[in-house]
């Protein structure tokens, strides 16, 4: 009997330990790196070309997506950042911003929380350098100095949502359970050794394939944690409260990466494959004579009925 209880207690302890180890492979909150003082320094820290040698296909896919130029955009994002400063920050009486020299990382987080989350690892000088670079790029285009514009455009595009943002900085969402991302680890679907001198380890990011992962940026509406909440992205909110609530079960990754066949070239409304996957349009037409009213009488009219069905996992359009 005693042996039976010993064995039973041992099994319970072992299974409890097993459950504990089922959490993600993060670690203690790491000591932050010194803040980057220039765009070049921040870009170098998150430079995705480091991954190119071994992950060429994925890198090439990613480079076609807007993640690869998240603050440049199509390129309408960069001008919109300036508009947010001119029509927003500089007109809000309590923002503290009257001139570009007043801009800080905290101010730019209104945009960069999603467009460049790693900006929180940079000094306020970098925030001002980003704004100055975008302005100089706009001016170069106005001056038709396209060589200069191209060079500045490359600088703006060097800051982006690259490999290390998803596979390290934002990899682990529930940090109390899964730990904090470690500086020497790449987070993905596998664990083990990783052939890279700077990132010698691989570990599993439990939520990487779940919609909540994309929801970190493609959000639920206003970012209330900011002093001045902005609200660009509501796709994840639409996903949760309209799509899942009505029985939908596909994840962002399943549609935007797997079923589309686009992989890391995540696309949206500008891509024919995504449009085809997202929308069914049915058009019917008929003609008849219709008495409209006493004044106009009977009119010959053609009637076109258009039905749009949104097959996607979120409202269209959204972001």
């Amino acid at each position: 009997m005693r042996n039976y209880w010993t064995i039973a207690l041992t099994c319970i302890a072992a299974s409890t330990l097993g459950l504990y180890n089922a959490y993600g492979a993060g670690g203690p909150k790491p000591t932050p790196l010194p803040k980057a003082k220039t765009i070049a320094e921040l870009a170098e820290r998150y430079d995705s070309s480091k991954c190119l040698e071994c992950h060429e296909d994925v890198h090439d896919e990613w480079s076609e997506s807007l993640h690869a130029k998240s603050i440049l955009g199509t390129p309408r994002t960069a001008p919109t950042i300036i508009t947010a400063i001119e029509k927003g920050l500089k007109l809000f009486p309590y923002s503290g911003v009257k001139e570009d020299a007043d801009i800080t990382v905290e101010h730019l987080m209104m945009c960069m929380k999603c467009h460049l989350p790693q900006l929180d690892e940079a000094t306020d000088e970098v925030a001002r350098e980003i704004v100055a670079t975008i302005r100089n790029w706009q001016q170069a285009n106005r001056d038709q100095d396209y060589t200069k514009a191209k060079k500045l455009e490359k600088t703006i595009a060097s800051l982006n949502i690259g490999c290390m943002v998803c596979h390290n900085k934002l990899a682990l969402i529930h940090k109390y359970a899964d730990g904090y991302p470690q500086a020497d680890t790449i987070y993905g679907a596998n664990e083990g050794d990783h052939e890279d001198e700077n990132y010698p380890k691989m570990a599993v990011a439990p939520a990487l394939g779940e919609a909540i992962f994309c929801g970190q940026c493609h959000g639920q509406g206003p970012n209330f944690e900011l002093d001045h909440p902005s609200q660009c992205a509501t796709a994840y909110g639409s996903y949760l409260f309209a799509y899942v609530a009505h029985g939908g079960s596909d994840t962002c990754q399943e549609c935007h990466m797997k079923k589309s066949g686009l992989g890391h070239d995540m696309q949206s409304y500008r891509d024919d494959t995504m449009i085809e996957m997202a929308l069914d349009v049915n058009v019917e037409g008929r003609s008849l004579f219709w008495r409209k009213n006493r004044q106009e009488g009977v009119l010959p009219i053609g009637i076109i009925n258009v039905e749009l069905y949104n097959k996607s996992g979120h409202g269209i359009p959204d972001g």
Binding site: S238, I304, N305, V306, N310
Partner: peptide, 11 residues
């Protein structure tokens, strides 16, 4: 927008 899994008609 068009909500997900919703149909919108226009004549």
């Amino acid at each position: 927008s068009i909500p997900p899994l919703a149909r919108v008609h226009k004549t």
